[in-house]
Nucleic acid binder design. Sequence first.
DNA 1: AACTTTTTCAACCGCGCAGGA
DNA 2: ATCCTGCGCGGTTGAAAAAGT
Length: 326
Amino acid sequence: MKPRGGRGGGGEQPAVRKGPWTAEEDEVLLRHVREHGPREWSSIRSKGLLPRTGKSCRLRWVNKLRPDLKTGCKFSAEEERVVIDLQAQLGNKWARIATYLPGRTDNDVKNFWSTRQKRLARLLRAAVPRRRPGKQSGSVSSSHAYELPTQKDPCLDMIPFQGTTTPAHHTGESSSHEPRAANQHRAANAPSLGAHSLPPPPVPLLTHGGAGAGHGSSSAAPTSTALLPFDGDYYARDAVAGVDPLVFVDPAACPEPLAVVPPGTFFGLDDDYVHAGRVLHPDESGVRFDDLPPETFDFFELPHLPPSPSPTVGSLSGADKGQKPC
DNA sequence: AACTTTTTCAACCGCGCAGGA
DNA sequence: ATCCTGCGCGGTTGAAAAAGT
């Protein structure tokens, strides 16, 4: 990190400091927020409180100092599901997705997603025979215990892992920005999404076992089986044993599950889904990369999930205070 | 135990929008 | 109508920690 002085707009202001925050800086920032609320970020520097840009201050607050954050907690299975579904629905609107996840920041969601993208990429590369034209994949199975019933060359090397830019499908909003006011208090009051096509966030999505389940958020998923990922899973097929880890929301109580990845949106592939070496056709929809990594099957520890935190709007500020056990 | 690889997390950057002057 | 400033968002990077060999 090159601490460049930056042409700090005002001559008297100290050079902008970058890099990791110190406890002292945190304290100053917290004090500022206590006194003024989470705003006036730029005044922090202009008043000489901290040699940090307003931007940096805001980021620090939002991502680290906010009292309602679930820091240090891995994403629960339910959270993962929400992220995956919403990403399919909204694209990379991390801030918006985060509004559905109390205690999570857009940065959390973003990091989570990119981590999984990387993991998937690696897994697929490892798992899938590289069959190039004219070269048969004879050697592949030797290094992998599982055999993949490949039906068609998935050309995985060409999968455009689009975590970065491509929304799975556009929701038609040209501006990703929510109304400012809504944004501003997102953390504290949970979201009030600007209308558009999505349902209001929090209530249904973190349903656990059904209660309060979803405002019909989706266009898809006529049945829960649409969400059932793996009929040929090579990690945990046996373990699955009829349990759909992703759809533990009782379909009866939640007749309208979250949107599934609609056909053609799996990593930008059209027509067919590529799934760890085999191609799934649209009628097998519901495949999502989340199913791939072994740890996904931590799902079977789901019973440990906290009893529906009732992630309703507003639960964020109160109930989620402090660092609760994950 | 040492080394390598992978994952996680924190922070920065650039861009675009909104509101005020 | 235009410019300026502040803020929020999404993408990216890099260091530290954890896991694997």
